[in-house]
Design a protein around this nucleic acid. Structure first.
Lengths: 228, 228
DNA sequence: TCTTAATAATAGCAATACTATCATAGATAA
DNA sequence: TTATCTATGATAGTATTGCTATTATTAAGA
């Protein structure tokens, strides 16, 4: 794993690029910890500033509001997963093996060696699981989609859909299967931990292997091919 | 469709039962319309009271806060879907046909003849699609789950999981498939309308037949059996 | 050394998320 | 019938949220 990757994100997501400054990095680092700790609803820029030893006004210079900060974190996460997928599937020809690696990466991204010291990938993963879908379940979804604010998620879907089509070129729902794998990966980790009667899998600590198995089962059953 | 069904919900969801009084019914009716209109984030009890010609304090006598109101609406919706499924699958023996009817009901519940005059089922359906998952993506999920606040969703999952097991008794993920069908039904209607590159299906107006087809394809491919 | 840019410190304001009190109108019970 | 009880309305008040604005200070660059 390379040190010092810069995750490249839509510039419209922030007012000032948080990756460029120490304060920006502190905002990212502490917002991840604080959202995880108290939840998105209770999270405010004032509390964040207090935790960081900075001020509300300074946080507002980086992000327009907490929704944009969430969108930034979500985009960061999916871009990072996308990077991991590229890295882990490099030089692998067989699309079936590529899809298996994609699924593994989806559920265990947080276990990779941390790439960037101001992002706790494991905690960020929890946030994506618990709050991620709130980033696009908003009234202004069309407007923000026009500004390409969901670019990273959509690109990743496209990438995985292409692998699916390599496996079975006439599969009728490649993008739906791809996005569903992402949603299921997160939902069923959440269900296993909080609403266990909505799923059949179990997780303990950070062992998500049952989720991985289930996603493989779903994907390869639909693609009517054996895991190789 | 019977007139005057009373949807029975966990009493912990409300302070005073809104189904019992005119004001309560007005709160349900207008909150559905207002959340749909301005979105959950912008929705407040003050705005609701203004729209209704009542007061903030009166609304608080029915619901502790807007989260509980959302949870009430979501529970109401799933209980109603559950009722429709029971009604529509009555006297049908073949579990494969039952599952097809369940899927149809999931995507087109809002088209059934309205059962209750103070609930606009079509608008409520839009709210569930756009905001429904926020009902359980909250910090207090475990606490609320202990109070059985997600009872209706969990029961419905159980019911559908049983049908799945009737089709294929050794299917390893009956509850996960059931809950995934619900999530997909809502997500892909939302995606088709707002983030079309995350799906392969299209919807126009209230024609969700492509979503229905896709869910059938997913379910029956996984269950490795033909639609009958 | 001068200038600029970034941050801190502080204030302020409108809206939100409630809680409390009191008045009143309608239904119910004595 | 009167008394009372209950639901709602009317009003007020408080702490917090979600910002914006102003000024001071500090660090970095020219």
């Amino acid at each position: 794993m390379a040190i010092g990757i810069k995750i490249s994100l839509n510039e419209g997501l922030y007012q000032r690029d948080p990756q460029e400054t120490t304060l920006g990095q502190k905002i990212i680092k502490n917002s991840i910890l604080l959202i995880d700790e108290i939840g998105l609803e209770a999270f405010t820029f004032k509390k964040l500033a207090q935790k960081m030893g900075s001020t509300e006004a300074s946080v507002y210079r980086y992000f327009e509001n907490k929704h944009m900060l969430l969108l930034y974190l979500v985009s960061w996460y999916w871009e990072w997963v996308s990077y991991l997928i590229d890295f882990n599937t490099m030089n692998i020809e067989d699309p079936v093996r590529r899809l298996r690696i994609i699924i593994k990466t989806l559920v265990s991204a947080q276990k990779e060696n941390p790439a960037i010291d101001y992002v706790n990938e494991s905690v960020l993963h929890r946030i994506i699981i618990a709050e991620g879908s709130k980033a696009y379940h908003i009234k202004a979804v069309d407007e923000e989609n026009n500004k390409d604010f969901f670019f990273n998620y959509i690109q990743l879907t496209k990438k995985v859909a292409q692998v699916i089509l390599e496996i079975k070129s006439d599969f009728p729902y490649p993008r739906a299967l791809a996005s569903n794998l992402f949603e299921m990966a997160n939902n069923h980790i959440y269900f296993a931990e909080h609403l266990p009667r909505l799923t059949d899998v179990h997780v303990n600590d950070e062992d998500f292997s049952e989720v991985e198995q289930m996603l493989e089962f779903f994907a390869f059953s639909l693609l009517k091919c054996q895991k190789s």
